[in-house]
Structure formats: C-alpha cells, structure tokens
Amino acid sequence: MARTKEFDPDAALQSALELFWRRGYEATSMADLVEHLGIARASLYATFGSKRELYLRALERYGEQCGPTVVEELSQPGPVLPAVRALVMRFAEEASRDALRRGCFVTNTAVELAAHDPECARRVEEAWRSLETALTSALIRARAQGEFAADRDVADMTALARMLLVLLQGLRVVGKADPDPGRLRDAAEQALTLLG
C-alpha cells in the first residue's frame, strides 16, 4: 500500500520559493530547505527531485503568481499611458519598500544563474519576453488611440517597451542593493518623460 504524503507539496513549494527568493540558489542548501520546509530530506527528493528542480519549480510558481497581474494592468480598456505610468511607479515604490530586499525572483535568477545555466536563462528570457510583449502591445494600442504624437511609429513603441523592461528590472536590482526611495522615484519619473 502506498504511503500518503505527510505534507502539502503545494505549501512546501511556496515555502521553498520564499526561501530561494530571500537567499538565492547558491546560498540555500538542501539542509536549509529541509529545516525551513520541515520535510525529511528523502521526502523532499522524492517529491521535488534535486535542489535545482525545486528551484525551477519555484521560479515557475513565481511567474504564475506575478506575471498575469502586469498583463491585466496593461490590457484594461481606456487610456493606456496612465496604466503604464502606474506600473512603472508601482515597481519603483515596491523596490523601495522591500524590507527583505528580495528584489524580483526572475531578475535574481538572471543575475545569479542565467550566465551558466541555460535552463534558467531560457526561463528568464521567457519571462522578460512576456513582459516586453505586454508593454509593446499596450504602447501600440496607446499609439492607435492617439496617446502619442502621430510621428511615433511602431518601431518607436517596441524600443520604448524594451527601455521600460530594462528600467523595471533595473529598479528591482537597485532597490535590492540600496532602496533609496528618492533615487528610484527620480529614475522612474525621468524615464516616464519619454512617454510624452
């Protein structure tokens, strides 16, 4: 007869996500995970496989929790540029209020692992492409609605979306290292002047 799990795998995955997000991949050992999750090492391996597999599942979970919010914010009917401005300012505010200095789990993965882990690099690129696509679509819609000068073409919207992607990720990195609200707010506001 098969034994039933003595823990909730979903809750354990969420707890692992929080630990990896706070400490990073390399600084989190299997012993740390065993202690933090309160799960026997054998059960952890049987349920999630290796530490790396657990990390990748945590990264996937993070994307499921955070990704749809941005797309929803940018796809609301009505004027687009106020939503883009609000998104940028929200990233700046969240980065300055992050008492744990966790940053963005995707950005943390990019900085720590993407250069030498192709699967992590692929997942980071996938997350960034999704955000860039949402920004590009929103800006093209804003252009079609007359929120930009008529001489701004679609290529301008794509380049602007890429700049905003880099800004948003940069806000998370700077906020993790030095969450000075003035620095983050000033950077965000200056970048937003490009929206017109």
Rank of each mutant, 00 (worst) to 15 (best):
Q169V: 00
L81Y: 01
V80S: 07
A12P: 14
E35S: 14
E60T: 13
E6Y: 02
D8E: 12
H36L: 01
A12E: 00
E119A: 13
V166N: 09
L19H: 12
C66F: 04
R162N: 10
R102G: 13
K176Q: 11
E189V: 12
Y55T: 02
E125V: 15
A83W: 00
A92W: 10
P181R: 04
Q145T: 01
L160Q: 06
S137F: 02
W21K: 10
E64Y: 06
L184Y: 06
E119C: 09
V80Q: 04
D151F: 03
G170N: 03
Q76S: 08
L17T: 03
G24T: 14
L54W: 02
R143H: 02
T28K: 12
Q145N: 08
L113A: 12
V174H: 14
V106F: 08
R141Y: 00
S96N: 13
L19A: 08
L194P: 04
A159F: 15
A177D: 05
R41P: 12
R22G: 11
L56R: 14
A142V: 01
A83F: 00
A46L: 15
T193G: 07
A2G: 10
S96D: 09
V111M: 11
L81P: 06
C120W: 03
R141P: 00
D98M: 06
A138H: 06
G24I: 14
A115C: 05
M157R: 05
D156S: 09
L195I: 10
A40D: 00
R97L: 15
G175L: 07
Y55F: 11
E93V: 12
L113P: 08
T193N: 07
E125I: 13
S75Y: 01
A150G: 01
V70T: 15
E126H: 09
E18W: 08
K176C: 10
A187I: 03
R123H: 07
R183N: 05
E73W: 04
S15V: 03
L131F: 12
R3F: 03
L87V: 03
G103E: 00
R141M: 00
E18V: 14
F20N: 04
V80F: 02
D178C: 13
S137C: 04
Q14L: 10
D153T: 05
T69K: 13
L74N: 01
M157W: 03
E72T: 11
R57M: 14
F20P: 09
D180S: 11
W21M: 08
R122M: 05
F105M: 03
Y25L: 11
V124I: 04
R152G: 05
